[in-house]
Computed example of a mutant assay.
Amino acid sequence: MASTWEISHLDLIVRMVLAAVLGGLIGMEREWSNHAAGFRTHILVCLGSATIMLMSIYGFTQFVSEPNVRVDPARLAAQVISGIGFLGAGAIMRNGSAVKGLTTAASVWTVAAIGLCVGAGFYTGAFVCTGMVLVSLYALNKWEKHLLRNRRYHNLEMTIYDAPGSLGRIATIFGEHQIQISDLRIEPMEPEHRFPQEAGKMLLAFKLKSVKPDKLPLAVEAIRRLDVVSSLTVV
């Protein structure tokens, strides 16, 4: 067993490989779910964190015996925890009022913590954290979808003629079918010279929260029959 400030080459390699494996397990789930930060990203974050932790503990052993030198293994680890935020921020995307990527950013930050645990030799914490992250990302995700199956969101885009009361007629149909409009984006359509028939139209992009998902097809069919609707697409 290595002393406090020394580590064998075998133990060093085992810790780095273990960090890559644990980070890869979490990254694989993100990859399967087609998220921005996937398999390789999580491996690199976990391996990099473990390497920094190892360097923080064992990389300055030649200075331990020097006078007036104080070794603090937690100093570099603290910089990893605060500095990993730049990578997590890159996975977060905002589209209107919708924000995506928060879970992936959190998983990247947690993988950095797992790497620090492995690098410090805190194997129990690393394994328990990895297991709980996998349960959270996979099992709890399925449970959450089942729990919120009647509160799922749907995106609907339509082109309508810019006539008085058009939007009100569409909103009335949604209300009759117990569908709540969560977000609405309105874009006027600029007619091109070769498409003069597009004049007087606008694009409506709805984000809908349906209490009863079976009501949505009925509402869509009723909206299609309106004379002000030119085209309609469920995204």
Rank of each mutant, 00 (worst) to 15 (best):
M55E: 06
T61D: 15
G48D: 14
G59P: 00
M28P: 00
E31A: 05
P67K: 07
G48C: 12
Q62C: 10
E29H: 00
G38S: 08
V17S: 15
A37G: 02
G24N: 07
M16P: 00
L18S: 15
N68T: 07
L47W: 12
V17M: 15
R15S: 06
H35T: 07
G27Y: 00
E29G: 00
R40P: 00
A50Q: 05
I7M: 12
I13G: 13
G27R: 01
G24Y: 07
G27V: 01
I52Q: 10
V14N: 07
M53F: 06
G38D: 01
L54A: 08
G27P: 00
I43Y: 01
R70A: 11
G27C: 03
V21N: 01
T41D: 03
G24L: 08
H42C: 08
T51Y: 14
T61A: 15
V69S: 08
F63N: 06
H42I: 04
G27N: 02
V45H: 09
E66F: 06
W5I: 01
R30L: 00
G48T: 13
S49T: 12
G48Y: 12
A36N: 07
L44Y: 13
V14M: 11
S8N: 09
Q62V: 08
T41H: 03
I13Q: 11
I57G: 04
E29L: 02
R40A: 00
T4I: 14
S33D: 14
Y58D: 03
I7T: 05
L10R: 07
V64E: 15
D11F: 06
A37P: 01
A50G: 12
G27W: 02
M28R: 10
E6W: 05
A50M: 12
V14R: 13
M55H: 08
W32D: 11
R40T: 01
F60C: 06
E66W: 10
G59R: 03
A19R: 04
H35V: 08
Q62K: 13
Y58T: 02
A37I: 03
H42A: 07
L47N: 10
S8V: 09
I13W: 15
V64N: 10
E29Q: 02
L54I: 15
R40K: 12
V64T: 10
R30C: 01
E6C: 05
G38Q: 03
